[in-house]
């Protein structure tokens, strides 16, 4: 009806079908292209280094400010955990100690579980022994930076990222990093009269 004769209408329909098939191929190809970009983009970034400022002046300054790793010696870092009384939590590191080079970035995880039927907010307080190393142990990320809230029965693995400054004196071969978790709810903490034996520092 749209054209003069049935045969030319048929020809037009065939021609249209051919065009449409080609256009659909483009559509499907581009849809696939989006997904193909996932590995291709990663490859392009690794090979071409386009996704980063490493080669730029800013990148060189940033690289220079990163501490060099001192591979000539190893320091043993021991991980310790303490729960302050009045906090019904389970708390321990997943590994007891690690050998690290000064300047090397290290990750370690602590396990924590709320054993009570109450949500509890607690705060971890870090300590470094010997104390002279404190200024050389740089924590990049730590669960002790913020308060931790655990729901009843909730368990969690919490990371600490740190490195030891290569400027640390050679005499320190073993360092202990310890954490003490405290309940932030002062009422839940033990009262002096209930725990007469307990020594408390009164400010």
């Amino acid at each position: 009806m749209n054209s003069d004769t049935p045969s030319s209408a048929g020809q037009l329909a065939a021609k249209n079908r051919k065009t449409i098939r080609r256009l659909w191929l483009v559509v499907l190809g581009m849809f696939g292209f989006g997904f193909a970009m996932v590995p291709l983009y990663r490859l392009a970034c690794e090979v071409g280094g386009i996704n980063g400022v490493a080669g730029t002046p800013a990148g060189r300054i940033a690289a220079a400010s990163v501490m060099p790793v001192d591979t000539s010696r190893l320091i043993t870092v021991q991980f310790d955990s303490t729960i302050n009384s009045g906090l019904p939590w389970e708390f321990h590191p997943l590994e007891r100690q690690k050998q690290v080079h000064p300047g090397q970035q290290v990750a370690v995880k602590y396990y924590v579980k709320n054993l009570s039927d109450q949500p509890i907010v607690a705060q971890a307080v870090p300590g470094v022994t010997p104390w002279q190393v404190t200024q050389h142990l740089k924590k990049l990320e730590c669960f002790c930076f913020t308060q931790q809230t655990l729901q009843p029965g909730e368990a969690r693995e919490m990371p600490v990222y740190f490195m030891i400054d290569p400027a640390v004196d050679k005499q320190y071969e073993t360092v202990t990093l310890s954490y003490t978790f405290m309940n932030t709810d002062r009422d839940a903490a033990p009262k002096p009269e209930q725990h007469a034996a307990m020594t408390r520092r009164i400010p």
């Binding site: 256009l23 483009v26 559509v27 190809g29 581009m30 849809f31 292209f33 989006g34 997904f35 996932v38």
Partner: peptide, 25 residues
């Protein structure tokens, strides 16, 4: 439109997968 609309469709599909099907695009 034929060239770029499918890419957006793919991108938001990946977003949907990340939200509900545990992928990490």
């Amino acid at each position: 439109l034929i060239a770029v609309m499918p890419v957006l469709a793919g991108a938001v599909t990946m977003l949907l997968f990340d939200r509900h099907f545990g992928t990490s695009f």
